[in-house]
Nucleic acid binder design. Structure first.
Lengths: 187, 187
DNA sequence: TAGTCCATGTAAGATGTTACATGATTCA
DNA sequence: TGAATCATGTAACATCTTACATGGACTA
């Protein structure tokens, strides 16, 4: 049995965007296809069923907007439950598993922090992301060191790519922490 | 209808590892859980069904190994079709869509290049990856430039993280090209 | 004797993919 | 009149996740 009510990355992306402002399925598809959120699928077969699921779960509510000369559209808004669920998600601890398998989802969480999480959440998030990255990277380095002689050139390079990618993420995290600590006093 | 025979990233990871040396499902699970390939799931509910699908498609063949005092295990080997399918996959063009949505899969492809693709494949792969990255990054920069004033701090930082991550990948790609061009004459 | 490792599996369910379908309006 | 855009949907299918299940061997 699957744990009930575990929303997907796409589901949270939809919730965040709808929270920013009420949107239709079409609006969301266009947003995905025309911004850096292109990493999400803009296909109707992904978006519309996902919105219906969110509605069934009571996280969004849609109302039909009739406009003369245009096809009717359904505009979705977050419900109180939807906002609570989104905040619950944003408050979750940063765990190793997410760093390794769901870094995209972590960055999506962070992207909406300023808008929907309490003050201080962003900095807490960044610090725990920093800790997880700083703990994980050495284990990759260690593996590389012990195995580099037995690995083909492309295999070794691929591993180095992964390590460098985590290192870039760690540098970004440090810079982001500095950026938040600087603005802290100002607000 | 879904296009038939499109194997998943996991399926190709299994094929590559089995091609390196015949392995059982348990071997594969242990490999995933104890190396940087931990980014793949090591759960039996993922691995065993995937192996059975590969066998049904004629890409691997398993034979039972009986050992006194231990539970029997099934060791899988690649078939001729499996090798052909793997090579077909490795030869595919690097397209924008994969850079954005399947960078993991691209790096997996690269990881096995030296072992199973023809000479020159790695360099061709790297050059076309380089071109796609170099073409994509400016569009992200442009979006950031036009929208940074309207974005919350965390949203802007999240986008910068994505850009820096692609830039790190691009730097790696350049270094990898240099590395291949250097060793080219030597082999 | 309790826990850990070896080893393989299935069941239920959610999500995502590609492809097909419909229909109005605007614009060249 | 044909193409593009607005707009929402379904059908078939594959894959993955979590959880449950089984059972032998070794070891503290």
């Amino acid at each position: 049995m699957v744990k009930p009510n575990r929303n997907s990355t796409l589901a949270f992306a939809l919730l965040g965007l709808i929270w920013q402002e009420p949107r239709s399925g079409y609006d969301l598809r266009k947003f995905f296809s025309s911004t850096p959120m292109i990493s999400f699928s803009d296909s109707p077969g992904a978006i519309y069923p996902a919105l219906h699921r969110l509605e069934q779960r009571g996280l969004v509510r849609g109302h039909v907007e009739e406009r003369p000369g245009l096809r009717r559209r359904r505009i979705f808004q977050l419900t109180a439950r939807g906002r609570a669920e989104f905040r619950r998600w944003q408050k979750q601890q940063v765990v190793r598993h997410d760093v390794i398998r769901n870094l995209d989802m972590l960055m999506l969480r962070f992207a909406f922090m300023d808008q929907f999480a309490e003050k201080g959440a962003a900095l807490r998030f960044l610090k725990s992301l920093h800790n997880e990255l700083a703990a994980y990277i050495p284990s990759l380095r260690k593996y590389l060191k012990s195995n580099r002689e037995y690995m083909p050139q492309s295999g070794r390079l691929a591993l180095e790519s992964g390590i460098q990618s985590y290192e870039a993420q760690l540098r970004w995290t440090k810079a982001a922490i500095a950026s938040y600590e600087q603005t802290k006093g100002e607000r």
